[in-house]
Design a protein around this nucleic acid. Structure first.
Lengths: 128, 128
DNA sequence: CATTGACCTTCCAGTAACTGGAAGTGCCAT
DNA sequence: ATGGCACTTCCAGTTACTGGAAGGTCAATG
């Protein structure tokens, strides 16, 4: 399979797949003409990566998860630890965003949004 | 005031203040020795920026908001539009994170997290 | 056989908003 | 004059790609 094929099958842009090779996440073979050639295993890894990324794991997490996936001697506790760490980062981010959302929501609600210049949003930002 | 003073007063790191000058958000004077000298107006702007950033506005948004703040002829509708756009981006992000959170939460709940290798998290990532 | 168009290659630069660190200067107090 | 802290500039690194240029390959068509 060439890069276009695995791109279609995995849903990842070709650019991203090249990048993943650059940073050592996948190791496609090369054919005579210099084109990357992907075996099923590599396609599988790319799909794995794509899924992990949509769940918000960082590339570093993906590296660890992929290694665990390929390690028959892994302990599920190792995987769970990575996932739980990620989960708490997600929760933290959600918390921050919700706090922003709330403050900003109030400000927006109180802003007339008309042709006049006075604006509670700017007042807040200016520390009024 | 030197940069250390405004840093303390605004809560922004000196590095960040220099960066804001670089990208044209503030315009401190310079004294004989080459040190930046900040007037109250500039300190005020920095505080404004700090507040806007904690509400998650992008630097580009900040630029617009600051210009509106300094424009007596502004219409509050302009400010409100920027804030509402930002609000919907926040909502979008919260939505994405919550969807991740939910999926990942289920996976984590179903993972034994013990010394055995079988793991529903990896199964999911592998597309099982 | 030449050309066209899709596909592939590498390499460089840009994104957002800083942050860290190195190397050097200024200022103040002992 | 010597510490020590604050200040300066400049360069590189962070995250995870993405866009684009310049050019090689391949299969089909005229």
């Amino acid at each position: 399979m060439n890069i276009g094929d695995v791109s279609r099958l995995s849903g990842l842009p070709a650019k991203t797949i090249r990048y993943y090779e650059d940073i050592g996440l996948v190791h496609p073979l090369r054919s005579e003409n210099g084109y990357r050639t992907f075996q099923d295993v590599e396609l599988h890894k790319l799909a794995f990566l794509g899924r992990a990324r949509t769940l918000g794991f960082t590339i570093d997490d993906c590296r660890v998860l992929l290694a665990l996936y390929e390690d028959d001697g892994r302990e599920s506790a190792q995987v769970k630890r990575v996932a739980q760490n990620h989960l708490s980062k997600i929760d933290e981010k959600i918390g921050q965003l919700q706090s922003m959302r709330e403050t900003l929501g109030h400000l927006v609600d109180n802003c007339h949004g008309d042709h006049r210049p006075d604006c509670p949003i700017l007042d807040d930002l200016a520390g009024a």
